[in-house]
Amino acid sequence: MLSLKTFVEGWDRFFYSTTDATALCSFRIMFGLFLFLNGISLVEDFEVWFGIGSNALVPLQDSFTFYKNFRINIYKWLSPTEFSAWLVLVTYIATSFFVMIGFKTRISTIICFILMVSMQNRNYSILNSGDTLMRCMLFLMMFAPTQVKYSVDAYLKKNKDEPFETEISILTIRLLQLQFSLVYLATTLFKLKGYDWVDGSAVYYTSRLVNFQRIVLPIVFDYPFLVKFATWSALFIEFAMGSLVWVKELRLPVLISGLLLHLLIEISMSIGFFEWVMISSYILFLAPKEIFWLKARFKLLLPQFGRA
């Protein structure tokens, strides 16, 4: 039986111990890159999604009346002009770049979050799970000490002989990990409510959606037993990412299975930023020595690319 004291000690160890900032700061760089690419990818269709008047598919005024309750939406306080609309996007792109390089990191992350939520509230009709994931992760990043390593802020501090403490509280990393696990757990629970995932036919249908297809994998999805194996494997891996990833001995095998699942989905289907943000979040589950190992392998690979 678990005593209250043991529970409190476990809670404290889980949320209040300290850890090296390598994983969090490496994640910031990758996550910041996707935030930045997200902003850049909005530029060409900007008039259509966020423009003013009949240039936009969702008029600005409609976006205000769509929600009854309070929502963060900076457009409400700005004048309804093309300039204001562009200002929001340009500022978002600039702050996401600052998040990536770690310049004025905390304030950049806060501004980036407010602008991202505002843009998503401005046009809800184009949002996919990648947008939702980025927004939820960015919320937690506002509270995380992501500037202490691999950042311009850290470089400037070091030059002033006041380097950041790189041993940080694990709290925000834990919350990011829990958010990450919840995505998998929730999607597993939603899938178990239906019958296609339970009877093993779901991947048959998803693989035949022409609109989503990227590379059509031959044979794999042409036999009922392979389709069932793929469906149940995907379901089990998602369940494992939401639960078994927390078991020390199973963490690495579960992460590798999850990575393979996402890469396979990314190769065969086109579904925006979701797969990439999920893959970059895996870094939060790695120990510093594992990240250094990856970094060393990456460095070994770089000269090879240079020679080629």
Binding site: N69, F113, S129, R135, F139, T187, F190, G194, N211
Partner: peptide, 26 residues
Amino acid sequence: SAVALGIGIWPSWSMFAPNPIRFDSK
């Protein structure tokens, strides 16, 4: 959900669930 919507952390994790769509639409 009301709080999540207000502070900007509303979720949407029902990807291809409870059943995936069975049609291509244009």
